[in-house]
Deep mutational scan, measured.
Amino acid sequence: MDETGKELVLALYDYQEKSPREVTMKKGDILTLLNSTNKDWWKVEVKITVNGKTYERQGFVPAAYVKKL
């Protein structure tokens, strides 16, 4: 869990989004888990830094590609 009590997951593999509802992740990324009720796709939040500014983006990743921490 992070400092706000949200559950975290670890990306076990790289994943490139294939639709606007998904998010890209790299092996080793730590993501915030938002919803894991679907056994195949989990909703996560990723933080992306571009030119020194951090953005948060929500989307789905394959559940088999992440592990709860």
Rank of each mutant, 00 (worst) to 15 (best):
K47R: 12
N35W: 06
E17Y: 05
A11R: 01
K68Q: 10
D40Q: 15
V66I: 08
Q58L: 06
W42L: 04
G5I: 12
K53L: 15
T4D: 10
T32Y: 10
V44T: 01
F60H: 05
I48A: 08
K67I: 13
E7S: 12
E45F: 05
W41A: 02
T49D: 11
S19D: 12
F60S: 03
Y55H: 11
K53A: 14
V44S: 00
K18Y: 04
E7H: 12
M1P: 15
E17W: 05
Y13I: 09
T4P: 10
Q16G: 06
V66T: 04
E17C: 10
L34S: 02
K6W: 08
V66R: 00
P62W: 02
E22A: 05
G28W: 05
V23A: 05
K26V: 09
N51G: 13
M1N: 15
K47I: 10
G52H: 07
N35I: 06
Q16D: 14
P62R: 03
G28D: 05
F60W: 14
M25K: 00
R21C: 12
V66C: 10
V46P: 02
N35R: 06
E45K: 12
L31A: 08
E56N: 14
A63K: 05
E7W: 12
A64E: 12
E3S: 15
P20D: 12
K68I: 12
L69K: 04
K43H: 12
V50W: 09
L12C: 06
T24G: 07
I48E: 10
N51M: 13
K26R: 09
D29I: 03
K43L: 15
K67E: 12
K6Q: 11
K53Y: 14
P62K: 02
K47L: 11
K6D: 08
G59P: 01
R21E: 14
Q16N: 11
D40F: 15
Y65L: 15
A64G: 13
A11K: 01
D14S: 08
T4G: 15
G52L: 06
G52R: 04
S36H: 09
Y55Q: 10
E45V: 13
D14N: 08
L34R: 04
M25V: 11
L31D: 00
Q58G: 06
N51T: 06
L10W: 07
E56S: 15
L34G: 01
P62C: 02
L33T: 01
L69R: 03
E45N: 07
Y55D: 07
D2Q: 14
W42M: 04
L33E: 00
E56D: 12
G52I: 03
D40I: 14
S19M: 06
Y13M: 13
D14V: 02
E17D: 04
E3K: 06
G28Y: 04
A63S: 13
M1L: 12
K68V: 12
E56H: 15
G59F: 04
V61E: 00
I48D: 07
V44W: 00
K53R: 10
T32R: 14
V9L: 09
V50K: 10
T49C: 11
W41M: 05
L8C: 08
P62L: 03
T37H: 10
K39W: 06
D2I: 14
T54E: 14
E56T: 12
Q16V: 14
L69I: 13
L10G: 02
N38S: 11
K39Q: 11
S36P: 05
Y65G: 06
R21I: 13
L31W: 03
A63Q: 06
A11E: 00
Q58N: 08
V23N: 02
D14G: 06
G52A: 06
G59Y: 02
M1R: 05
T54L: 12
R57N: 06
T37Y: 07
N38H: 14
L8R: 11
M25E: 00
Y55T: 11
V46Y: 08
L69Y: 08
D2L: 11
L34K: 05
Q58A: 11
L12S: 03
F60K: 02
Y13K: 13
L12P: 00
N51W: 06
E17N: 06
K43N: 06
V9P: 00
K43M: 15
T37A: 10
P20K: 11
N51Y: 08
P20H: 11
V23F: 08
K27Y: 04
K53W: 11
Y65E: 03
K53I: 15
K67G: 08
V44N: 00
I48T: 14
S36T: 09
V66N: 00
T49R: 12
A64T: 12
V23T: 05
K18L: 09
K43Y: 13
K47A: 09
L8K: 14
M25L: 11
M1S: 15
Q16E: 13
E22R: 04
G52K: 07
K39Y: 10
A63I: 04
K43R: 11
D2V: 14
E7Q: 14
R21S: 15
V9I: 07
I48S: 08
L12D: 01
V61F: 00
E3P: 13
Y15I: 01
W41C: 05
W42Y: 07
Y65R: 05
S36F: 06
Y55N: 09
K39F: 09
Y15A: 01
P20S: 12
Y55M: 14
K67Q: 14
I30S: 02
K68W: 04
Y55W: 13
E56L: 15
I48V: 14
E3L: 10
K18I: 06
K27S: 07
T4F: 13
K68L: 15
E3Y: 04
Y15G: 00
K39N: 12
V44C: 04
S19E: 07
Q16C: 10
T4W: 10
T24F: 03
W41P: 00
L31C: 07
A11V: 07
G59S: 01
L10E: 12
N35K: 07
V44F: 00
K26G: 04
L12A: 03
S36E: 13
I30H: 04
K53M: 13
K47S: 15
S36M: 10
S19P: 04
D2E: 15
S19I: 04
W42I: 04
V46N: 07
T32F: 10
N38T: 06
T49H: 14
E17F: 05
T4K: 05
Y13R: 13
G59Q: 01
E7I: 14
K67T: 12
Y65S: 08
V44L: 03
K6A: 12
Q16S: 13
M25I: 14
V23C: 07
L10F: 09
S19T: 14
N38Y: 09
L12E: 04
L34W: 04
T4M: 14
K68H: 10
P62M: 02
V9D: 00
T37R: 06
G28R: 02
D2F: 04
K67F: 08
T24W: 03
I30K: 05
P20I: 08
V9G: 12
E45G: 12
Q16P: 05
K6L: 13
P20V: 09
D40T: 14
Q58S: 15
R57S: 05
V44Y: 00
Q16L: 12
G5A: 11
M1F: 12
M25Q: 01
N35V: 07
S19C: 07
V50N: 08
N38C: 08
K27V: 08
M1E: 14
Q58P: 05
V61C: 04
V9A: 09
T54Y: 11
K47V: 14
K67V: 15
V44P: 00
T4Q: 13
Y55S: 10
G28L: 02
